[in-house]
């Protein structure tokens, strides 16, 4: 493999990592602040993608579609928080797992009921279609570059939000001592709804952005959810920085592993077999990465002791 191709694959890994970050960031915030495990986070990702596809089909505007995705996912998140999730904060993780598992069933089938059983269409905006030639001669899709830029900008924005704003102070206070901030007069139930809606909006945003280059279909959220779990385990619960580092690590491992392992095996195997075996092993790589991190640091790279 040439160096150029390798660099392009690194870029691809970075891009998928950055998109993964958007999903993982919301999850880790909700974990950190409310101590809640939300299996239905993937459903919010799906809602964002479907809302974007529906609005794009109706209006033809990608901007409106993204706004719709943010709004729909945030609204769904706030609604779910107020109707269901709110009752779960005092419960143990077991009840949270079951309740949010139930939410997945409801969201998935309700989406299929509303939008039908076939995937929907969502395309990238004309302004971002096609590819550009990067220094060094890599032909790279403009949209993917935009995804990297948007993801990193949002990451920076989140850091700012957490470290510099009033909301951020409340969130951090909520992570370390829940009773205290209530005692200080912060409306904690409003704060929780807000954080949950923010996490949902991030997931929905990621769903819409990724939906434009993938397939908008029921069940699209669950694989992402499981990857996001791996990211959070690696990065450490509640840490935005951990989520970013973990997501990029997972993205790079997944992309480069899938490309390099079959290549390596080709040195001592027939090409067909190398492709099959290499791909089988590559599918396990990120879990091995997780296991290694776990042995090294049981609470993730940037996690606090639980």
């Amino acid at each position: 493999m040439t160096l150029l191709l390798f660099l392009e694959q690194v870029l691809n890994g970075l891009q998928s990592g950055v998109m993964l970050f958007l999903t993982a960031a919301g999850l880790t915030l909700v974990f950190g602040v409310m101590g809640l495990i939300n299996l239905a986070h993937g459903s919010l990702y799906m809602i964002g993608a479907f809302a974007a596809a529906a609005i794009a089909a109706a209006t033809g505007s990608f901007t409106l579609a993204i706004i719709a995705a943010l709004t729909a996912a945030a609204a769904a998140g706030a609604l779910v928080e107020m109707v269901v999730i709110r009752r779960l904060y005092t419960r143990d993780h077991l009840d949270q797992v079951l309740a949010t598992f139930a939410l997945i069933l409801i969201f998935s089938e309700a989406t299929r009921w509303v939008f039908g059983s076939f995937p929907l269409y969502l395309d990238i905006p004309d302004a971002l279609s096609g590819s550009v030639r990067l220094p060094g001669g890599i032909e790279y899709p403009r949209y993917r570059l935009a995804l990297i830029a948007v993801g990193l900008t949002l990451a920076a924005g989140l850091f700012f939000l957490i470290s510099r704003t009033r909301l951020g102070i409340q969130i951090r206070a909520g992570e370390s001592d829940r009773e205290m901030i209530a005692a200080l007069g912060v409306n904690i139930s409003k704060l929780y709804t807000l954080v949950f809606a923010l996490g949902a909006a991030l997931a929905g945003f990621a769903g819409a952005l990724v939906g434009a280059i993938q397939s908008v279909q029921v069940g699209m959220g669950e694989p992402v959810l499981i990857l996001a779990f791996v990211v959070i385990v690696i990065g450490g619960i509640g840490s935005i920085k951990g989520a970013l580092v973990g997501a990029v690590l997972v993205g790079l491992t997944d992309t480069l592993g899938g490309v390099l392992l079959p290549e390596a095996l080709r040195l001592f195997m027939a090409p067909s077999d190398a492709a099959a075996v290499g791909s089988a092993l590559a599918s396990m790589l990120i879990y091995l990465l997780m296991a290694v991190v776990l042995i090294w640091r049981p609470h993730g790279l940037y996690g606090m002791r639980a």
Binding site: L5, E8, Q9, N12, G13, Q15, S16, P141, R144, V210, I213, Q214, S215, M220, P223, T255, G258, V259, P262, P271, S272, A275, A276, G278, S279, A282, S283
Partner: peptide
């Protein structure tokens, strides 16, 4: 080239580069 992808894979940037 002959490549096996993951079942359910949604991102093909790496394969397209290949």
């Amino acid at each position: 080239g002959e490549v096996f992808t993951q079942l359910g894979q949604t991102d093909y940037a790496a394969e397209i580069a290949q």
